[in-house]
Structures are given as structure tokens and as C-alpha cells.
Design a protein around this nucleic acid. Structure first.
Lengths: 125, 125
DNA sequence: AAATTGTTTAACATATCAGTTAATTAACTG
DNA sequence: CAGTTAATTAACTGATATGTTAAACAATTT
């Protein structure tokens, strides 16, 4: 199992915490895009976008290549894997809490019988 | 499918961006723990922990219940699901980049062989 | 070479974050 | 009730984040 630098996860999650940056990644999922093309899609200034790109690059989530006067940005999706793995660990706990999820987002209209409750507790070590 | 407030993802990822908070969640995965018990495990002051707990609670990742003079903190793992789903979207792109991952880090991390390669390309617009 | 286009850096304003210590609130104990 | 324990809030500090506009840099075009 790959030992992940904690800083790397810090940077990844921090990069993903900004909606503009998430949307940038979403755009880059369609392929390489130049910085200016990206900037045109957002209501903020080009320097602001440039800094978002720097954050994403620092987190390893994108790379930039110089192409004439353009800086083409490319998604590096595999760099999301460590974050995914971190979250994956908690997936095992979800099944115990699915009912709570339903409670939270939907009105608790459906009276699901709480029969999982029998051994439904957080695992302890 | 569940429509997620973007702010919620912001808060979730921001909460996860701090290593202390990630470790708090890790501790809470073992079961309910009082705030003071948590604080004792970390090299920072109790107020600092209290604020981390507030951030986690605000992100919905934990809940707190009052029990006498203790505040017992409980993990709400299902609230990680939206973040997971967001990342899940990008998983499809990983298979194309596994070699780059190898270049970057060490041995292959993903147990799944890249047989999705057949129609694996970046969608473009 | 001069002007234009694409992008980043500089300098700045403002807000938020993460930590501290001191004070406060709340509940239990003797 | 007085004292102790548990936890939070208050007030403050220093660092970081996000945005702005203006300036600088780099490559292309004329």
C-alpha cells in the first residue's frame, strides 16, 4: 500500500474545496484547454484563474505545457486516486447509516423499519 | 439522484484538507468519543480541537450530543458520500493514465486492470 | 521593430484559518 | 454551596486564500 505524504492529501482536498477549481477540473475532463480559454468561461479575472491553475498544478491535479503563447492545461485524474482511497476507507461505515442519509436529505416520509438497528453500531477496536 | 449544494462539497473538501481533522475522523471511526478525549490525543490545545470539531460539524461530517458534561462526537460517514461521488466521476479517466501514475509515484496502486481501455478516451467538445 | 495577444507576476485589500491563552458556561462532586 | 472538570467562546496573532488592477513577460503578427 502506497504511503501517501499527508501534505499531498492536504493539497488535493484543499484544491477541491473551491468550486471554481472543481469546475476547472470538470472543463479539463473534456480535454486540454488553454488558460485563456478557461478564463473566458468564468466570471473572474484571468489572474485569478491563473492562480487557481497554480493551486491545481501544485496539487498535481493538472499539468501545464507551453504551446506557443498558450499554456495548455491537462487534467491528471490519477492524482485524485489518493483522495478517493482515503474516502474509500469510510465507505464501509455507510451501510450502517443509510437511513440517516435519507433522514437528512429527504423528508422522513417512508417509515422504514429500523431492523438493522440490531447490531447497528459503530465498529470499535 | 440527489442534487448537492455546491457549498456542501466546499465544506466537505475544506474540512478534509486539514490533517488534524482527517485524523479526528479516523479516531471517530472507532466509535463515539468525547471532545476532551479527542483533544488529549493531539498536540494542540483543547480550544483548537473544539474549533476543528465545529468545522467538521458544520460540514456535517460529525454530530455532537451532550452527555452530562461531555460532548460525545459521532462520525457521520454517509456525509462523505457526495465527495466520493464527485471523485467517482473522474475514476473513468484513471485507466488512461495509469502509466503516468507509475511514472510519478511507485508501483501500481490500482488493483483493477485497465480493461476499460477499449473505449477509454477523454471526451471532447 | 512595433503592436497585439496570452498569461503570469506584483502589489494590494480583505477575509478566513489555525493556533494561542484567558475567560466563561455547564455539569458533576464533595 | 464551593470547587473541579469538560468544553466552548472571546480576543488576539500570524499565516494563507481569493480577489482586484497594473505591470511585466513571451510569443505572434503586421
Amino acid at each position: 500500500m502506497l504511503i501517501e505524504e499527508p501534505q499531498q492529501l492536504d493539497r488535493t482536498f484543499a484544491a477541491l474545496a473551491d468550486p471554481t477549481r472543481r469546475e476547472i477540473l470538470n472543463v479539463l475532463a473534456t480535454g486540454e484547454v488553454a488558460a485563456g480559454t478557461l478564463a473566458a468561461r468564468f466570471p473572474i479575472s484571468a489572474p485569478a484563474i491563473s492562480r487557481h491553475l497554480r493551486v491545481l498544478e501544485h496539487a498535481g491535479l493538472i499539468t501545464r505545457r507551453i504551446d506557443g503563447k498558450h499554456r495548455r492545461c491537462r487534467l491528471e485524474p490519477q492524482r485524485l486516486a489518493p483522495a478517493m482511497q482515503w474516502l474509500e476507507f469510510y465507505r464501509r461505515f455507510w451501510s450502517e447509516s443509510l437511513q440517516q442519509l435519507a433522514d437528512h436529505f429527504d423528508p422522513p416520509v417512508h417509515p422504514k423499519p429500523p431492523h438493522r438497528r440490531s447490531h447497528g453500531r459503530h465498529p470499535r477496536n
